[in-house]
Design a protein around this nucleic acid. Structure first.
Lengths: 234, 234
DNA sequence: GCAAAAGTGTTTTTGTTACACCCATGA
DNA sequence: TCATGGGTGTAACAAAAACACTTTTGC
């Protein structure tokens, strides 16, 4: 304490942009705050970083609290620190984005907040700078998913190629050539075809695939070029 | 204050990883601290975020203080927050990396620190988690420079293709095919050939080039694919 | 005249894109 | 039997990679 005593201290929070995919479109998990300030307004899930915690621990704790999930994909997005971003008090926010298997999500009982999934094009007004955080998270997800197989984190254990196709076209808000898409995905050797078919979505049914976990882990950082002309992603 | 009063407050600092290029190799600017704690040890340049400042302002202020430069390329790298990363007190560090034209750098007179440029493979032991920050900055620079023309930020107004070649091979610690490299660089149309030659580096002399600032700004986010097989960049 | 670094084209290989029809099934 | 969505191959084109010799000039 002796050397830094003149410096201003700040609150430090972690806010999580939580993405899920329901087989048709990408969704975002938001909470309606049950506490002041901004009680009743829509918000990202967040919380203050505890005295003995690092950011990852705080992020994991918050995610667990809201979704019941642990060991999910979570990655630091950006640190936000405008002096007045939280009008109540100087608060720095370390934003993380998480990708979860929406099927594993279970609504938590809590008085503090009530959570809901939103389609990405129907996001309500959010408190503070949370809309900016969401925008940035979408950009980063697009950027990263163009090269790395990160979107598989959103899929259930067994999934079909049409589902995956829906996810990619949704994330990039574009149509992709179905044959080229299939070829590219399968050429990564990341997927293992199952014998069963998914029969809900269509009459013919679509084959299930599973991730080859070994290959996935080892190729995660490789450049797989999922998206044609990834220009202008930012 | 009324709602957050129970939360722990922390110090928030900005640390800058400052890269420069002398025409031959990539360098890092470090300071030897003239103040406690860790007086005399090598460190990144940093400082606390002031009560009315955001991170970018703090980063710019710190960079100006050490290098005399303003309006240089600076980008947020990562937020570090392990509870004991600074043994003195709980301090969160928002790390930024900066790319400067080493020729414009002018040593600042200050009692507080004495600065020196280091080759990237001769970095001394650094305080706290600064070595980890440097490592991460190198990785991010490699990643980003593989797709975006960011390394031009390190060059002086006029530079030669051999200098640029040295920079790229240095950053990726690899040899590149000279003809393919030249073709790729020139095919971006980002460079304008000058009439004069640089005569210091060789007998024959190498033509100077300048950045086409307009094109550079508009293509900055495009994917230019500078590096063959960018796999395993992380 | 020779050492040292700059500059320059072509061929091969690889990857990307464009494109359209048949299949399986439940209603 | 037909409507719906699933599944599949090929040819043209574009981009990347491999490869070596000539030029200039200061010493």
């Amino acid at each position: 304490m002796k050397h830094y005593s003149k410096q201003k201290r700040m609150l430090v929070a972690v806010d999580s942009i939580i993405f899920g995919f329901d087989g048709h479109e990408l969704k975002l998990l938001l909470i309606q705050r049950g506490f002041e300030p901004e009680k009743g307004k829509w918000s990202l899930m967040g919380g203050f970083v505890g005295p003995e915690e690092d950011f990852e621990q705080a992020g994991a704790r918050i995610l667990k609290q809201l979704t019941g999930l642990k060991n999910v994909y979570i990655e630091q997005l950006y640190a936000f620190g405008e002096p007045t971003r939280d009008p109540e008090d100087r608060t720095v926010s370390i934003a993380y984005f998480a990708l979860i298997d929406i099927g594993k999500y279970e609504k938590q009982i809590s008085d503090d907040f009530h959570a809901e999934w939103f389609s990405l094009n129907k996001i309500p007004k959010l408190i503070f700078d949370h809309s900016r955080m969401v925008k940035m998270a979408k950009e980063k997800l697009r950027y990263k998913a163009a090269f790395h197989p990160i979107l598989f984190e959103l899929m259930p254990e067994k999934f079909t190629l049409p589902q995956l196709y829906n996810l990619y076209t949704g994330v990039y808000d574009t149509v992709l050539d179905k044959r080229n898409f299939t070829r590219k995905i399968l050429s990564t050797k990341l997927l293992v075809k199952q014998k069963e078919k998914e029969k809900e979505g269509s009459k013919k049914g679509a084959f299930y695939y599973k991730l080859d976990k070994r290959r996935y882990d080892s190729q995660f950082h490789s450049f797989l070029n999922f998206i044609p002309n990834p220009d202008n992603l930012k």
